[in-house]
Computed example of a mutant assay.
Amino acid sequence: MHLSPARSRTPSAGPRQVILRYAVLALLAALAFAGTSTGSARAADGDVTWTVRTAANGYGDDRSSFSYGVNPGSQVKDAMVVANHSKNTLTLALYAADGYTTEKGQLDLLTREKKSLGIGAWVRAGKESVRIAPGRTAEIPFTVAVPRNATPGDYVGGILTSLKQSDDTEGIAVDRRLGIRIELRVSGALKPTLAVEDLHVDHHGTANPFGQGDATVTYTLHNTGNALLSGTQKVTLTGPFGTLETHAGTIAAAPELLPGESWKVTVPVHDVTPALRLTARATVTPALTDAAGSTTSLKPVEATTTGWAIPWTLILLIAVLPAATTAAYLLRRRNRDRRKQREDARVRDAVEQALQDRTHGTQDTHDAQDTDDTQDARATRSLRGVLVVPPPEVG
């Protein structure tokens, strides 16, 4: 089990040293924890290499890790073999530490300066350090002493070899560690319990008023029992009354969580219909591994929550459409009224013009009649002085 190097920086590091330091740390991070039965740690220049493995004894000849079932107050004695593949003699520190799950879902062990309460406090190597000549091996005995008041359940940690190296020029101190995992199950009532907590769902809309969007479901897996648990996960979204069901894609299995540990999960869900109200359901099936390595699936646990999935674009369209229709109607009505007013004005002008023309025509007629009457009167007055002689009678 190759563990993440512990590092520290000296106060004398300058800007160039700091940049180089982070580059080296990035390289060392790539050599982080690997859960194998044996492993090797190699310096950057390749001059330091060593491996660790389980010792062959009554517990087995080729074990991937140390695993025990014990009673409170009992002891277990075992050994680890360390081999020096370097050209120089190695002096390695020996100690045990509690395990924890990293943000990447991998097991890591506490550094030596951090206090351990389980494996790290109960496991003691036969010596605090070991000196190994080039090409030689050393068997390191250790004892697991379980307190009488130990709580039943699972404990995980490891036994480690450590080599501290420093580079005063670059201001880097590196604690390169190599160890083997230790799993311990203290007898008593085993209560494997996994809870789904803080379940939330957030819907992300789309510009298409009739389209589907995406959602994000988040929750926390909390190992509330006393057993080491992993689990398979499933997330489903539904609309009102269980309609419009949408399943999330394949979700990676949760890592093994130690008792009391939590793991945050984020699940994207695609092609979700914005049905105003969404119900999110997270289903987790815990998996319990026994001392023989076989896995048993436990009763699934579920959690549900609701969240809004409002189709804002569609609502905006629905709100704007009547307003646009009303505005178009009012605009057409106003234009029609304007056309009617213009038509009425033309008719009124035409009528007025016609009336004016008629009035002018009547006046001209009256004037003409007056002229004729005057002429007739003048003619009559002219004839009043003329003697009219009747024609002679024919006999």
Rank of each mutant, 00 (worst) to 15 (best):
F142V: 03
T220V: 15
E103T: 12
T266Q: 12
L383E: 13
V130P: 02
G225W: 00
T365A: 11
D376G: 08
H222S: 10
Q106Y: 06
G69Q: 11
E261V: 01
Y155N: 07
A6G: 12
R336H: 05
H203M: 06
Q17P: 02
E170T: 14
G307C: 09
G225P: 02
T91W: 06
R176C: 03
H270F: 07
V146Q: 02
A173V: 15
P259C: 04
P240Q: 13
A13M: 09
A377H: 09
E183I: 01
R124E: 15
S74G: 06
S65T: 02
H270G: 01
H247R: 08
N226I: 00
R277G: 03
R277F: 11
A292N: 11
G58A: 14
A275E: 09
D168S: 10
T295A: 05
R112S: 05
G205E: 01
S86H: 14
V269I: 13
G293S: 08
S37D: 06
V269F: 04
G211W: 08
L109S: 03
V130I: 08
D108S: 10
P152C: 01
P391T: 10
P255W: 00
I119Y: 00
D78G: 01
P286E: 04
P274N: 07
G205R: 05
G58F: 08
Q353L: 12
G361Q: 12
D370I: 01
L383A: 11
F241C: 03
R42T: 14
V123N: 00
R346V: 09
T224N: 03
A26E: 14
V144D: 00
T304H: 04
D62P: 00
K115N: 06
A173E: 15
A189H: 06
E261D: 04
